[in-house]
């Protein structure tokens, strides 16, 4: 994870196209400028970044399922529950499942565990739309490749 660059996913560990789910892994860094403010002398992974982590796993799932044709943008967070604190160095197991593939939107369920302990979960809504510009699509595909996600169509 590079928190300050919003790179929340280290590795996609699996995509189950039949179950429409994706699993991923990420290690919270031991040090980050984020921890200098959150909180001084008591570093904790910000809850909003845990939500972002679930959103990115969900986003890569939606991209994998739509063949990288449309970009999912986070539009709604429901039933978000942050169950316990996450400290620097924690390894996160993230799972996202497609709940509904609508016309111009998608809904996922996502959760994070660490050492088999439930960390957080949420239901997320995305607007899906054409990439705003070609460079954007290239950048997203490149990032997907970096984390081990193939961009094959289902």
């Amino acid at each position: 994870m590079l928190l300050e660059y919003f790179q929340m996913i280290d590795t996609v560990t699996g995509v189950d196209r039949e179950a429409q789910s994706l699993s991923a892994r990420a290690a919270v860094p031991d040090e980050s400028p984020v921890f200098e403010g959150h909180f001084p002398g008591h570093p904790l992974m910000p809850g909003v970044l845990l939500i972002e982590t679930m959103a990115q796993a969900s986003g890569f799932l939606v991209l994998a399922l739509n063949g990288f044709e449309r970009m999912p943008f986070l539009a709604g967070v429901k039933e978000g529950k942050l169950r316990t604190f996450v400290e620097p160095g924690a390894v996160l197991d993230i799972e996202a499942t497609l709940e509904h593939d609508g016309s111009g939107f998608a809904v996922t369920r996502a959760k994070i565990e660490s050492a088999d302990q439930a960390i957080c979960n949420a239901n997320l809504t995305f607007r899906t739309m054409p990439f705003p510009k070609p460079d954007f699509a290239v950048m997203i595909r490149e990032r997907a490749r970096e984390i081990g996600l193939e961009d094959e169509r289902v």
Partner: peptide, 13 residues
């Protein structure tokens, strides 16, 4: 428009 997405989701289902 965001609430309408929730409505469409519920109708779809």
């Amino acid at each position: 428009s965001l609430d309408f997405l929730d409505i469409v989701l519920a109708i779809d289902k």
